[in-house]
Amino acid sequence: MSTGVEAVAAKGWLGAHKWLLLRRASQLGILALFLLGPLAGVWIVKGNLTFSYTLNFLPLTDPYILLQSLLTRHLPETKAFVGAAIVLAFYLLVGGRVFCSWVCPVNMVTDAAGWLRERLGIKGGAHISRRTRYWILAMTLVLALATGTIAWELANPVSMFHRGLIFGMGAGWAVILALFLFELFVSNDGWCGRLCPVGAFYSLLGKFSFVRVTAAKRAACNDCMDCFVVCPEPQVIRPALKGVDGAGPVILAANCTNCGRCIDVCSKEVFAFGTRFGNKVAKVSQPAGEMTPAACK
């Protein structure tokens, strides 16, 4: 039953947790950069995930909140647009939902809940469709239009958590605790995989993003199913891994977060990071066979 045992046996513990460790380093590192100012007085980054200013030079804007602000019929300063353009370009390059798995602090909370869920053997829970997030995304945009305020920011746990860690949490802890318990008892991947409109927004970028996970050596798959167990969006794997309807080996599904857990957990090293263009070649040459892995980053 234990997931990843084979991978640890084949690649060693470090090899079987490489991307997980890198991901945690990225999440904590980004948080540390933000906290260095208020805690140590070293001002490399100011602000939070909705807008930040690095070294008084680099603006980064959350394009989702900028879109909501535009819908309230406010025209922001140029700096905000430049920041949004940089962020959009970045996620179009590395993968839309890279935000979710490599940057967003809530991911650590929901991952912790998922880990505890497995430890406690909690199974099942409420069935919430993975499409719900797009409805919520639409709802937040309609709210901005209808209320003339960025209403979603009153409830958004993502920005609330990140802002809280940097500027003071207040009752925000209650919201995060509620989120943790929701993940633990009510719905596995309930927040990040089903409800969160921030992730839904970034998944729209993922439709076109350059860096993708590819099941390059899918012929070597021994059907251990470990990748399906660890993947926060398991529905994205099957088409690429199994070549459903002649699909190529690149995971093109927008909701793949490029977290790399499937790469870690696979003892046969089926998966690797590649680009979305590794797919076309595959389609032309052979539908589902052995092929050269696409160029890795």
């Binding site: 001002w43 100011k46 909705t50 920011e153 003071g168 949490m169």
Partner: peptide, 28 residues
């Protein structure tokens, strides 16, 4: 009313206030 549509809650005003008088509202 306009402020609540324009402010993205980034806290840069809080950071650049030399007297630290500003704070960002917490949910409570």
């Amino acid at each position: 009313k306009d402020f609540l549509g324009a402010c993205v809650r980034c806290g840069l005003c809080v950071r650049d206030c030399p007297y630290d008088i500003l704070s960002l509202a917490t949910p409570d």
